[in-house]
Amino acid sequence: MTSFFQSLGMSYEAAWFTATIAGILLIALPLMLAVALIIYAERKLWAAFALRRGPNVVGPFGVLQSFADGLKVFLQETIIPSASNRGLFLIAPIITFTVALMAWAVIPFADGVVLSNINVGLLYILAISSLGVYGVVIAGWASNSKYPFYSAMRAAAQMISYEVSIGFILICIVLWAGTFNVGGIVEGQRSHIFGFINAYAFNPLLFPIAIMFLISSMAETARAPFDLTEAESELVAGYQTEYSSMAFALFWLGEYANVLLMCALNAILFWGGYLPPVDWAPLYAVPGIIWFFAKILLMFFVFAWVKATVPRYRYDQLMRLGWKVFLPISLFWVFLVSGYLMFTGHFA
């Protein structure tokens, strides 16, 4: 893109700067649009699972529902409770949303199409997503109200519990790919199985951790069945109880942007990212970004499906699953995968 702006007669620096800003906006703005549409799609899906009709009034088939909701909250009054800590109360949604956007900087959308191609891309995603816990904790604490505070503490303990096994799962993938570069991991999956299937998930050694990663990513984003942070029967609306107007909407946007990010990570780490499913020349005629989006949507369908069908966990069950099931299994899998790769001379 830099060369395009250079052809308009800019100097290299100016062209680079314009191209980068354009790239950032090309990620951030469509992401927000995608979040709006995905919320609509999810409501339609749940409705279908429950044999209801879902949103169908605003616009054709109700497509504009999310935009109408957005406009409504935009015009609402921002209520800052008198007991709250004003500054932190307003900073919390900013942190949540900023963090949700930031991780997309290293996601490759097609071969070579990535905003920032760093060596430690996967660690960057891990680092950024570990910041997500602060938005929730600060929101709960700054509200100075009982339910948000309980919810924030639950959320923090839940997120850090599942981050452990996510870390070990990522190590299994990195062992196989040999790099922390996200694009490199996608390329590592080219003709991975039988020389023509482009996905780690069909590898019998990696399939179990693909499932574990999917479940952990639901827990990490506090989605149903792990949505203990906003269990409305116990905690009203969780850490968002005291929020209103766009500050409330930012938590929603951030949450769904995180869900999309986790879907994208599932697609990248286990299902071949922007590569077509099989290594067959005619399939490469379809642009990589289409494959990538198709995979993200498929993962999102799984997320919505789970949310519509699985009842909520209890908190002790959630912690048990994280610490007593996923942690030992993923640790054992690091041993298994590394041992297998050493014996087969993968690194030689």
Binding site: L123, Y124, S130, L131
Partner: peptide, 9 residues
Amino acid sequence: MLLVIVYVG
């Protein structure tokens, strides 16, 4: 990255 993951996270 470790500084962020370990200390901040």
